[in-house]
Simulated scan of single mutants.
Amino acid sequence: MEAMTRLRIDLAYDGGGFYGWATQPTLRTVQGTIESALHTVLRVPQDDPDQRLRLTVAGRTDTGVHASHQVCHIDLDEALLERAVGHMNVSGIEALRRRLSRMLPDDITLHRVSRAPSGFDARFSALERTYVYRIADRGSEADPRMRGFVLRIDDRLDLDAMNEAAATTIGLHDFGSFATPNPGGTTIREVKYARWERVPVRPLIDATGLAYETPAVESGLVCFTIVADAFARNMVRSLVNGCVQVGLGKRDLDWFAGKMAVPLREGSTGPIAPQGLTLEHIAYPADDQLAARAEAIRAVRTL
């Protein structure tokens, strides 16, 4: 039996051209695109059931959602990994990174391919995930270059009210009003941080005496940053939608608190548009705690 190597892959993608992360038979997805490239680079037939190259990801993003830093892993036997070397005088892992980077489309970028430490599981070892949702409301000027990554809202948002709503999400809760469980799973999650902020207008050049000021591209945008141990399906976008309804004055804080208190899914707490959402960071524990974390997180949580 060949020795197996687990590789950690750190990557980013523009989700606008993908139907989410998870492989679907007839649709373009991030996982499907990368796995297809792996089969090509390693010369493994995609219809060979005994050598199916499968990625395990930290968090499956939905259709149209972006990632500036996603993490996944794959298990390969050493002999298969050496196929990537060819005439290059580099390790199998570095050869795979180079060939895979050239094979992937422009809307996927590899940050790093590395040998995973013992006990590492991209999904179950993760301590927390950080998402940011970006909005251009009436209080900001929407830069057309950001149109694929920012949601435009015509009215000005009340950030104070939205932060009062967001504060009720912090802690261990059942987010059943704002999420859909996986089969056999739960919507109980622990939110560690949730806050709305308007990006201050920042000049590109920090100097005095200039006749004009060129702002940074994110200046004036409204950003929602949320950190949790994990997220259920549609959870972030649904929480954003709930907060936005409060911020526009369409719903009050008692309504939002009621949704948190009674985890019942219904139409008013559906997900907002996907383009404003980006997965920004995945955090992991120290190497000697990876296996224990993965074992603990596999247990079904309760309140």
Rank of each mutant, 00 (worst) to 15 (best):
A3E: 15
L7S: 09
R8M: 14
A12V: 11
F18Q: 09
Y19W: 11
G20H: 01
W21M: 02
T23R: 15
Q24K: 06
T26L: 03
R28H: 03
R28N: 08
V30F: 02
Q31F: 01
Q31E: 11
Q31G: 07
I34P: 00
A37V: 05
L38Y: 04
H39R: 09
H39I: 05
T40H: 11
V41D: 11
V41E: 12
P45E: 07
P45F: 10
Q46V: 10
D47H: 08
D48I: 08
Q51L: 13
L53M: 02
L53P: 01
R54L: 14
R60T: 07
T61E: 02
V65K: 01
V65P: 05
H66F: 00
H66Y: 00
V71F: 02
A79N: 09
L81F: 05
E82M: 13
E82Q: 15
R83L: 03
A84N: 11
H87A: 15
N89M: 14
E94S: 13
E94C: 03
A95V: 11
R97Q: 15
R98E: 13
L100E: 07
R102S: 15
L104V: 11
L104Q: 12
L104C: 08
I108D: 05
I108E: 07
T109F: 08
L110N: 05
A116F: 12
D121Q: 05
A126Q: 02
L127I: 06
E128F: 02
E128Q: 12
R129V: 12
R129L: 14
Y131G: 12
Y131E: 12
Y133C: 03
R134G: 02
R138P: 00
R138D: 09
S140V: 01
E141W: 12
D143G: 05
P144C: 11
M146Y: 01
M146G: 06
R147L: 07
R147T: 12
R147I: 09
G148P: 00
L151E: 10
L157C: 02
D158C: 12
M162S: 03
E164M: 09
A166M: 06
A166I: 04
G171H: 07
L172T: 14
F175H: 05
S177Y: 03
G184M: 11
G184A: 10
G184W: 12
I188N: 00
E190A: 06
V191K: 01
V191Q: 02
K192L: 14
Y193M: 13
P203G: 03
L204F: 00
I205Q: 14
D206I: 10
A207Q: 13
G209D: 05
A216K: 15
E218Q: 11
L221M: 08
L221S: 05
F224R: 05
I226W: 00
I226L: 00
I226G: 01
F231T: 12
A232M: 14
L239W: 06
C243M: 13
V244P: 00
V244G: 00
V246R: 03
G247N: 05
G247Y: 07
G249N: 10
K250R: 15
D252C: 09
W255H: 06
R265H: 08
R265G: 04
E266N: 11
S268W: 13
G270T: 10
G270F: 02
I272V: 14
Q275I: 03
G276T: 04
T278W: 00
L279R: 06
A283V: 11
P285H: 11
D288Y: 09
L290E: 06
A291H: 07
I297S: 13
R298V: 04
T302F: 08
